[in-house]
Amino acid sequence: MSERMTKRMSDRLAVRKTYKLYIGGAFPRSESGRSYPVTDTKDRFVANASHASRKDVRDAVSAARKAFGGWSGRTAYNRAQILYRIAEMLEGRRDQFITELRHTGASKTQAANEVDAAIDRWVWYAGWADKISTVAGAANPVSGPFFNFSTPEPTGVVGIIAPDSPLLGLVSVVAPAIVTGNTTVVIASEPAPLPAITLAEVLATSDLPGGVINILTGHRTELAPWLASHMDVNAIDLTGVPDADVPSLEDAAAGNLKRVFRASEDWADDPGTARMTAFLEVKTVWHPVGV
């Protein structure tokens, strides 16, 4: 972070933060050793962000896969508590996020509103953890002596190309994917990646198991095709992808029949349930009824 923004009354030289990736609960640099400069709206240097590589994508997918069994096996109540805990930790860092959002061009009020909305969004999704099955599941009246029920289950590892709304948009695409038990590999906004890494610090202190959310920063056009074609990724959210790139990424995603979701929206709107159900599989179980 630039000294300009953090300079205090004293002339003490600020200790800057190194922005790294977030993979498997750890904060590694890109294995490629690359970084790229992030600037504010007046083109002033803010920080270097990690410039992730194909190998980082694969490491992140592997971490997400490893975390899937444990996270999807947690009780819904437990996942709800962890998402709520994320909101608590985010609230505690409210000022830091406001500062970071101001680098991206937001006014003080806009930045404060966005952080508040992001915190509230975590709270909103936290409450869904133990309700989505009731809404999306069913007991089915089949015409025979069978007990038959359908429950939604997480799709698996979800790749997310996050939108450029650096905090609220990011939270709005990640929270609905993980609340149901999916694990994720997120490619953060390319021009505004820093709030995503600060969010990772929130996640790392929120009892969220490592690997549930993995965050990469770098060049979207370089990373997205590897994520879209990865054979151990079950679904992909292309919300942050420009229209022109959608056909080739959907084509790559067809390789292992990934579920593809893409919807642009006003992040201030009521999110609805579409982002959760997009990454749910309905499982139907039959059992005979008899004595």
Binding site: N140, T284, V285, W286, H287
Partner: peptide
């Protein structure tokens, strides 16, 4: 679809 103690059952009410 998981069939427990049965198999290959289908019904229009069942996803």
């Amino acid at each position: 679809v998981v069939w427990a103690n049965t198999f290959n059952k289908f019904d229009p009410a069942s996803p």
